[in-house]
């Protein structure tokens, strides 16, 4: 596990632990945690808060045949224990991301959005959007500002912006005040997973046209 310098904040972890984070952000969180044991430990301690909460709930009686009905469910499903979800050692994408892509990096259905930048929008519920981005080595990400929150997780290569250097596993959380211009490092293309809870607003006429076509 390589060293990770940019982590999730408490708000994201608590919202994820409580099951109230939009799906696109949840995918970024789950993917980061698959790479980061520090944030996994923090998440699991927020889940322990949930465990205490469930103890706090008063008891509400189950129906009389509830236990029998539950054993019926168990028997209907058979004894097949679910296999643990673990990605291969050399995989670029951890399991949660592979579930959305339908495979690893080689299986991504990229679409060019100009300047050598490629993206693949992943299907989620409409309260957030999430996509994979591929930025050519040395190139800048399309200039954009955003409303709401944006999370960007690096999976391969690295980028730098006003907040520092971001390599595999690092996650940047930006709000509307941050106007950033990530630039991919020389050497290899930078592959990121980026989620927003508001549509991106690209600056300039050409990206705006692209937006109409691509639907981001």
């Amino acid at each position: 596990m390589s060293e990770i310098n940019h982590h999730l904040n408490d708000a994201m972890l608590m919202a994820y632990a409580s099951g109230n984070l939009p799906e696109g952000f949840s995918l970024v969180v789950a993917t980061h945690i698959s790479l980061c044991d520090d944030c996994r430990a923090r998440l699991e301690s927020f889940e322990a808060v949930g465990g205490a909460m469930i103890g706090e709930c008063e008891n509400i009686d189950m129906s009389e045949d509830a236990l029998a009905a539950t054993f019926a469910l168990i028997d209907a499903d058979g004894d097949v224990a679910e296999a643990p979800r673990i990605s291969a050692m050399d995989a670029v994408f951890p399991s949660p991301l592979q579930d959305y892509v339908g495979g690893d990096l080689d299986n991504v259905a990229w679409k060019s959005i100009g300047g050598g930048v490629k993206q693949a929008v992943l299907e989620t519920a409409p309260d957030s959007s999430v996509r994979l981005l591929s930025i050519p080595a040395g190139a800048a990400m399309p200039d954009h500002t955003h409303r709401g929150t944006e999370m960007t997780l690096v999976l391969k290569g690295a980028f730098s912006d006003e907040d520092g250097r971001f390599a595999r596993g690092d996650v940047e959380i930006a709000d509307e005040e941050l106007h950033h211009t990530p630039i991919a490092e020389d050497g290899e293309d930078c592959i990121c997973l980026a989620a927003t809870d508001a549509p991106l607003r690209f600056k300039g006429i050409i990206p705006r046209l692209a937006k109409t076509f691509i639907g981001i």
Binding site: A17, S18, G19, E23, E47, G50
Partner: peptide, 26 residues
């Protein structure tokens, strides 16, 4: 109780919010 909480939370997302729940690797 924490573990049961996580299973119940996932059920809540699935049934009440009708969303997929991306989970970290096991």
């Amino acid at each position: 109780s924490t573990w049961i909480y996580t299973i119940a939370r996932n059920k809540k997302i699935d049934v009440l919010r009708r969303q997929r729940r991306p989970e970290p690797e096991d």
